[in-house]
C-alpha cells in the first residue's frame, strides 16, 4: 500500500527562473516530454517532485508498520509468506523512492530524520488501527486497490526516475491486490463469524479508502503545478469516483454492506448505517456515495489520529536501535572506493 496523492502543493513559484528556459521546459512537459535528473528543471519542479517522492517513500515505510505487526499472526503458511513478501515490497518501494528523492537533493538520512521528528508527513490512512486479521485483508484489497489506481496515473507523469519506479511498484502492488482479493473472498465465503469480522473491518476501511485520494479538487485544480507539470495526471475526485465505481458493486457482490460510520477517537466504529447515496446513476455510469468526513481527515493529518504517535514512535525506535549498525558498517569500509 502506498500513496502520494494527498501531498498538499503550496509551491510552484518560478519568478526567479530564466523565462526562456522555463517556457521551453513547460512546452516539453505539456507535449508529453519526460524529465531526467540531469535535465534543466525549474527549482519549483525539483522541490515539488522531491517532496512528492519523499512523501510517497515515507508512506511506504510507515505503511509497513501496521501490517508488519500481523506477520507473526498470519493464520496459514501461504498467508504468512504472502504478508511477509508484501510488507517487504513496501520497504523496497520506500527504498527505491528514497533513492529517487535523494537524487533530487536530500539525503536519505535527512529524510528519515525528518519523518521521525514529525517535520515531514506520510499518508494519512496509516494512522488508523488494525485490530483484527480482517483489517489486513481489507487493507490489501481496498488500500492497495486505491494505490494501484492512483499510481497507474502517476506512472504517466513527467519525471523519468519516478515513473520507472511507479511501473515497478505497480507490478508488485498487483500481487498485493490479488492476494487481498483472495483473502477478502475467503472470509466472505467462510463462516458467519469470519463474515462478521470482514464487515467490521470493511466499516473501518471504506472511509479511509475513499479519502485515500486526498481532499476534493479545487476549482483551479488543473492549473496547479502538480497537474500543469504532469506530476499528477488525474484529479483526486476523478480517481475517487473511479474507485467507487469499481469497488462498491464488487463489495456488495461479496455480501459486504457499504455503511456510513461514525468513529470514536480510537478509530472504533460507534455507529454504522447503509450509505443513503449509494446508487448507480444509469446515465453517467457513476455510483453515488457519501463523502468522507473531511473535518476528521484533516484532524488526523494534523497528528491527532488514533495511531499517529505509535507509528512515529516505532519508526523512531527502529531508527535509533539501528544507529550502531549503520555506523559500524561504514566504519568498517577501510577504503571508501573499495569495490
Amino acid at each position: 500500500m502506498s500513496a502520494s496523492a494527498n501531498v498538499e502543493v503550496k509551491v510552484g513559484d518560478c519568478s526567479n527562473e530564466d523565462p526562456q528556459k522555463l517556457a521551453a521546459f513547460e512546452e516539453h512537459v505539456a507535449n508529453g516530454g519526460l524529465i531526467e535528473p540531469n535535465d534543466w528543471m525549474p527549482e519549483a519542479y525539483r522541490s515539488l517532485m522531491l517532496r512528492m517522492a519523499e512523501h510517497h517513500a515515507n508512506s511506504e515505510i510507515v505503511g509497513a508498520l501496521p501490517e508488519g505487526e500481523w506477520i507473526v499472526k498470519a493464520p496459514s503458511l501461504l498467508r504468512k509468506l504472502a504478508l511477509t513478501a508484501k510488507v517487504q515490497d513496501e520497504v523496497g518501494h520506500g527504498q527505491m523512492l528514497y533513492e529517487v528523492a535523494q537524487d533530487l537533493g536530500k539525503s536519505r538520512n535527512a529524510m528519515l530524520r525528518d519523518l521521525i521528528t514529525g517535520v515531514t508527513k506520510y499518508h494519512n490512512c496509516f494512522n488508523y488501527p488494525c485490530p483484527t486479521w480482517a483489517d489486513i485483508c481489507m487493507i490489501a484489497w481496498l488500500i492497495d486497490g486505491a494505490a494501484i489506481l492512483n499510481q497507474g496515473t502517476l506512472a504517466h507523469g513527467s519525471f523519468g526516475p519516478y515513473i520507472r519506479t511507479m511501473r515497478r511498484i505497480n507490478m508488485e502492488e498487483a500481487f498485493h491486490f490479488k492476494h487481498g482479493e483472495d483473502m477478502v473472498l475467503t472470509l466472505m465465503s467462510g463462516t458467519d463469524s469470519q463474515k462478521q469480522m470482514a464487515q467490521e473491518a470493511f466499516d473501518r476501511w471504506w472511509e479511509p479508502s475513499i479519502a485515500f485520494f486526498g481532499p476534493n479538487d479545487r476549482p483551479d485544480e488543473l492549473e496547479r503545478p502538480a497537474m500543469r507539470w504532469r506530476m499528477k495526471t488525474a484529479t483526486n475526485d476523478d480517481l475517487r469516483q473511479k474507485f467507487v465505481n469499481r469497488f462498491a458493486p464488487a463489495a456488495m457482490a461479496t455480501g459486504l454492506v457499504i455503511n456510513v460510520c461514525t468513529k470514536d477517537d480510537q478509530g472504533n466504529v460507534t455507529s454504522a448505517t447503509p450509505d443513503p447515496l449509494l446508487k448507480l446513476d444509469e446515465e453517467t455510469g457513476h455510483w453515488g456515495f457519501t463523502q468522507p468526513n473531511w473535518e476528521e481527515f484533516f484532524r488526523v493529518i494534523r497528528g491527532n489520529g488514533p495511531c499517529n504517535k505509535d507509528r512515529l514512535a516505532l519508526r523512531r525506535f527502529s531508527y535509533e536501535q539501528g544507529e550502531w549498525v549503520r555506523k559500524a558498517i561504514l566504519d568498517g569500509t577501510t577504503t571508501p572506493c573499495k569495490n
Binding site: R108, N109, E320, E323
Partner: peptide, 8 residues
C-alpha cells in the same frame, strides 16, 4: 534526535 546523521 540524540545522534548525528551517519555519513551517506
Amino acid at each position: 534526535l540524540q545522534t548525528q546523521e551517519v555519513q551517506k
